[in-house]
Amino acid sequence: MGCDITLFCEGYIKEKWINIDRWYRKDDWPEIMVTDTEGFDYVDLIDGSRDYGLFYLLAGVRGSEAYNSYPPISPPKGLPEERDALLKKEYNYGNVPDNMNFHHASYLTLRELKESGYGGLMRLKGWVDEADFDDTMSRVLRGDRCQSHFVDIKEGEYRRQGKVYKEWDGYINLNLTDMIEKMEQLKKERRIASDDEVRIVFWFDN
């Protein structure tokens, strides 16, 4: 069964948390009077991606530390008590008795995402397809930003067949890297001062 993420970005503005990646076209901010008949401007932080590597790093979804050397940024925290009305509406809409598949709800500030170290180049090690790895490293040397797929050293030997062991400086998840950059841009556009005042709020469903 597939797993999807619902994810919003919020900023702490005028002493309250307000959604900043979707906003109501009439009055800039989604508030309690948002209706289904009006459209939204929208910045998709993860480009609609069903990226299980990203899901694992955000909240331990679709992965296990028993087989992964890089732990999740944080265990799921649940939804924050104070959040934008649009998030409350979206979560309550799907979380009804005949659709109780929402799980691993959580939130992470821009500071937490950046301090994880997962957004930039980091030291990686694992088992790779040699031809694919060499091609990726050549592209990196040309200045491209790309991600090399690898089998973690904690994985079983059967996953390593036909692969070679490497250590390198690379990106663990480019969707996470891109999301952090988009959050930085939203922070700048909304004139928010602190990385603690920009966050993602998210949950998963099967």
Rank of each mutant, 00 (worst) to 15 (best):
M1C: 04
I5D: 01
I5S: 04
E10K: 00
K14W: 00
W17A: 08
W17V: 08
I18C: 11
I18Y: 09
N19Q: 06
D21E: 04
W23K: 03
W23S: 09
R25W: 02
R25I: 07
R25T: 05
D27F: 10
W29L: 12
I32K: 14
V34A: 03
T35R: 01
T37P: 02
D41L: 09
L45W: 11
G48A: 12
G48N: 11
L54A: 06
L54T: 01
F55C: 02
Y56A: 04
L57W: 01
L57R: 10
G60P: 01
V61K: 06
R62L: 14
R62H: 05
G63K: 10
S64W: 05
E65H: 00
P72I: 02
S74I: 07
K77M: 11
G78V: 01
G78E: 03
E82H: 05
D84I: 02
D84C: 15
A85Y: 02
L86I: 07
L87F: 12
K88A: 14
K88V: 15
Y91F: 15
Y93L: 10
G94A: 07
N95F: 10
V96H: 11
P97A: 14
H104A: 15
H104T: 05
A105I: 02
Y107E: 00
Y107K: 14
T109E: 07
R111H: 09
R111K: 15
R111D: 07
K114Q: 13
G119D: 08
L121H: 02
M122Y: 05
M122S: 11
R123T: 14
L124A: 13
W127A: 04
W127D: 00
E130M: 08
F133I: 07
F133V: 00
D134A: 10
D135G: 01
D135L: 13
M137P: 00
R139K: 15
Q147T: 06
Q147G: 00
H149Q: 09
H149M: 11
F150I: 01
V151S: 12
K154V: 06
E155G: 01
E157D: 14
R160E: 06
K166V: 08
E167D: 11
D169F: 00
N173Y: 02
M179F: 05
I180P: 10
I180R: 12
E181M: 09
K182E: 12
K182S: 05
M183A: 14
E184S: 09
K187V: 07
K188W: 04
E189M: 10
A193T: 12
A193L: 08
A193V: 12
S194T: 13
S194F: 02
S194C: 08
D195E: 15
D196P: 00
V198P: 03
V198W: 05
D205Q: 06
N206E: 04
